[in-house]
Amino acid sequence: MAESKEIEVREAEKQELAQSGAERTRAQQAFVPRVDIYETDEMVAVVADMPGVDAGSVDINLEQSVLTITGNVNEKRPEGYTLAYAEYRTGDYVRSFTLSNQIDQDRIEAGVKDGVLRVHLPKVRPTSKKITVSAG
């Protein structure tokens, strides 16, 4: 791996969720998590940076072909301290994707570790057999 590569400052920036038609019910600010999406023959994988989110506060929803990932963050404010200087804000995470593949909903797997959500969306295995048309 390229060991000398450095993370750029812009990676530290959090993009606020743009206000869409529906308003949020939680008063907290919401952010768009940074994601990596990759595909294999069997599945589509979504990896999202959601610091502060644990397994209990994450929600994955697939409706029609729209995948929505939501992570609620309950910020832990250090007791007895006041925030004197801030470079980032904390808040929930929301992001939606339209999937182009047929996904096998029953086999979706997801896990959160160290603030990173990984969702594996297995593609529907082709069940139809190839039909040969015989001339005759």
């Binding site: 450095e6 400052v9 925030l83 200087y85 980032y88």
Partner: peptide, 16 residues
């Protein structure tokens, strides 16, 4: 406090 821009990665918050 007002949001400051991080000089380099990562962004930091300071509680005192």
């Amino acid at each position: 406090p007002r949001l400051s821009v991080a000089a380099t990665y990562p962004a930091m918050n300071v509680w005192t």
